[in-house]
Amino acid sequence: MDSLKNMNGLIVVPAFNEEKVIASVVKKIPKKILNLELDILVVNDGSVDGTARVLRQIGANFITHPINRGLGAALGTGFEYARIHDYDFLVTLDGDGQHDPTDLPNLIKPIALGKADFVVGTRIRKKGMPQTRKVLTYLASLATYLFTGVWTTDSQSGFRVFSRLAISQIFVKVDRMEVSSDFFRQAKEKKLRIKEVSIKAIYTQYSLKKGQNVWNSLNILAKLTLQKLID
């Protein structure tokens, strides 16, 4: 894998009020994978708890939205940062600790080898996902398919990797949770190569509370519908 040596990756961790877990999430992320350099950027999305304090304490690289703008906005800022600092690939990883960094090599490999532009870590194939979550995930994927024409087993997954090409072409214009589906829409529109890789999901009481619920899903559906009407 000699050709991989010169690639620089940025791991974007969106965080909103994650003071309890953000330190352990950041510390678990390796600085180097498959000989590739990894930088971490936490996008502190206007947290009103001690997230910024914790990040400062552990010396993490982070930037702060002055006010909370939502998941999509935070990821969009991560993309902008990656463009400014000229990264070769970008990883998104949730700030609530539900993603296992040991999955990183599998996710990054297709990008590093130039075989994909957008890799999604899907949770559905592995055990450990609560039943209601499974049904929601399926419905969300169905909705994503209807709106974007891309079938994926886990459209709402927050563990993704984007190639340099994807970084240069994807501009996040939605602010909230609908960003997950929007990535697929844009990937399809820009003819990027999408690949799914199965990952472990760590479901704790904490991450379940922070994640999406039925109400949220309906909200996303409404947003997607309106978006479709306006476009």
């Binding site: 996008v43 206007g46 930037i63 702060t64 939205h65 002055p66 006010i67 703008r69 939502g70 906005a73 969009g76 800022t77 902008e80 940062y81 400014i84 214009k173 602010d175 306006i230």
Partner: peptide
């Protein structure tokens, strides 16, 4: 409102970056 929201986000982003 959508437009305004986008502008606010853009502003938050510029401040962060």
């Amino acid at each position: 409102i959508e437009d305004t929201q986008k502008q606010i986000t853009e502003m938050a982003r510029q401040i962060a970056l």
